[in-house]
């Protein structure tokens, strides 16, 4: 009886515990919202400022008495100026060509490399896998001088082909690393089942690994795309001819004349340049998340 009484007395306390768990969760949520809103403000302020500036007239921009965050007479003149300038379209075209080629080259190399390094156990494969990652740790600001020599030696300075050659040195190691991790999460029995079912190694890669690791491949693709689209140091170093420039340095080199900054066009150009990554993110993220929720790696 005494025991029963004790048990009864404990009952409300058990409920209290549940309640406090609920309260803790509510607080955690509140903190999460506050931090997320703060982070959003910090990260969205620059693009917002770019947008505001890009639709201001030059007169309004120069007037220091006005609030810089507010637009009085919105205009699209800077966008027209940019889009009707053939050299800007050339920058755009160069960026697209370089990015598509770099992403393709990167994904082919890194998927094959990761498959070999993670699945075909061979002498030195572990060391190689680590080595691949270590090369990623060398910053491009250190590499561009020796690479300049190499690209120059190959006669590819002032050509987008020079960029197609050097960008993979940035993208391949990291993408390979991502893919090694992803392939490693695929149960070994899956390849063994495929081997017994009669698959060759290439068939195993194309019919099992690539479909199953699609979320990882998309993540790596997004990374390669971002690096290649936003690269700045290498094109600055290797390209001086406007017709070979990608967007990132084209905008800066053509719209900044001495100490004269064409702010409206710089901002509208930068916003237009930022559009493709946003589109790619939105499009691929859907696939990425769909891939994750499909439990693709669960046997």
């Amino acid at each position: 009886m005494a025991e029963a009484a004790v048990a009864n007395r404990d009952y409300p306390r058990v409920y209290g515990k549940v309640g406090s768990l609920h309260r803790e969760r509510a607080w955690a949520l509140r903190w999460a919202y506050v931090s997320l809103i703060l982070a959003s403000i910090i990260f969205l302020a620059p693009p917002f400022y770019m947008l505001v500036t890009s639709i201001k007239t030059n007169v309004e921009m120069a007037d220091q008495s006005l609030n810089p965050w507010i637009v009085r007479n919105p205009t699209l003149e800077h966008y027209w100026a940019i889009l009707s300038n053939p050299i800007f379209l050339t920058f755009f075209k160069n960026s697209i060509i370089v990015t598509i080629l770099v992403v393709s080259v990167t994904m082919v190399i890194s998927v094959l490399a990761a498959f070999a390094l993670s699945r075909m156990r061979f002498w030195g494969s572990q060391v190689l896998a680590t080595g691949v990652f270590l090369t990623y740790l060398v910053p491009d600001t250190l590499l561009f001088i020796p690479l300049y020599q190499i690209v120059g030696g190959l006669g590819l300075l002032n050509s987008i082909w020079g960029l197609v050659l050097v960008y993979p040195t940035l993208t391949v190691p990291f993408c390979t690393w991502i893919m090694i991790g992803y392939f490693a999460s695929i149960p070994k029995e899956l390849d063994e089942a495929a081997l017994i079912d009669g698959a060759t190694w290439p068939q195993m890669l194309t019919k099992i690994f690539i479909p199953v690791a699609l979320p990882g491949i998309i993540a790596a693709t997004i990374f390669a795309f971002t690096v290649s689209w936003a690269a700045f140091v290498y094109p600055t170093a290797f390209i001086t001819r406007p017709d070979q420039m990608p967007l990132t340095i084209g905008i800066v080199s053509q719209l900044v004349r001495g100490d004269t900054f064409a702010w409206g066009q710089i901002m509208s150009g930068a916003l237009i340049a930022a559009l493709p990554p946003v589109v790619v993110y939105v499009f691929l993220m859907d696939y990425y998340i769909a891939g994750l929720t499909a439990g693709a790696t669960k046997g």
Binding site: P187, E189, L190, E192, A193, A194, L195, I196, D197, G198, A199, T200, K207, I208, P211, V212, L214, A294, G295, A296, T297, K298, G299
Partner: peptide, 28 residues
């Protein structure tokens, strides 16, 4: 393994997650 004319059933089933049951069975 593919030329030994054997079939194996694994502890964790090792089904191909991206394929339907029909495709899993018919893969080999």
């Amino acid at each position: 393994p593919r030329d030994r004319d054997i079939a194996m059933v694994f502890q964790n089933y090792a089904l191909y997650p991206h394929m339907s049951v029909y495709d899993n069975i018919s893969f080999g």
